[in-house]
Amino acid sequence: MAEIYAAALINGLLIGGVYALVALGLTLIYGVLHIVNFAHGSLLMVAMFAAWLMAEKAGVHPYAALPVVALAMFALGWLLYRYVIGRVSRGEDRAILLATLGVAVVLDNVFLTLFGGDTRQIESDLTFAVIEAGPLLLSVPKVIAFAVSLLLAGALWAFMALTDTGRAIRAVAKEPEGARLMGIRPERIFALAYGIGIGCLGAAGCLLLPSFFVSPHVGNVFVLVAFTIVVLGGMGSFPGAVVGGLLIGVTESLGGLWLGESLGPIGISLVFIAVLLFRPTGLFGAAR
């Protein structure tokens, strides 16, 4: 019996690592910039399709494709902010919400038209590879995704805390006019930060591909969970995104074990409510 719990716990941690990966970009975009990015799931889908296409048509392994896909997604995010979201919204929250929702609708349907609704996956030696740790079996792609999400969280934290661009990103979200008086162009910083957040999705897409199916709807699996993690972990906190992701992964896994597949996800909401009851700014959120 203990082994079943241990397996569920480990599996939850590994899934949580994957969730954290998706949440990292969102905690920058939603947590720091306060852009309600409804397009987050759809852009993850685009990244996964990009990785899938490179594997299927060019024979490039998703891990090898990661730098290219991450850069391409950064560029896509930058362009989307610069020419669509930023222009439409003019800094108005409601308009931002509608703009990102519009981007999501367009992307979902373009990919549905191009690729149909089928699920696809890549043939890879890694897909079913496992590490045996005593009685436990650890999926190799998930272990890798877990490790990379930790590294990426560390890198993002360092970037935001220690570089001028990172400081400027934090500054413009709260005080754009004060930033202008320092010669910082808020709209440029916003586009850059949005691009970085979407670039993280590029990395996430490549790391997910060996163990997940791709379809035009794949984003839906992750997007609500990612928003939950961002708020649970604390808006804009990268350690919060990782710990929140792991907590949600474990909750989901143990909830499924105790309550069954259909009732299990209720655990996520319960944990979410409990955390916010005691820490309204999230696990790692700054006090206001």
């Binding site: 001028d164 400081r167 934090r170 979200a173 709260k174 005080e175 006019e177 004060g178 008086l181």
Partner: peptide, 15 residues
């Protein structure tokens, strides 16, 4: 003033 309220004193000055 329009300082950056969510940044540390040091980060405000550096910016």
């Amino acid at each position: 003033r329009k300082i950056f309220p969510n940044l540390s004193v040091r980060d405000n000055l550096l910016l």
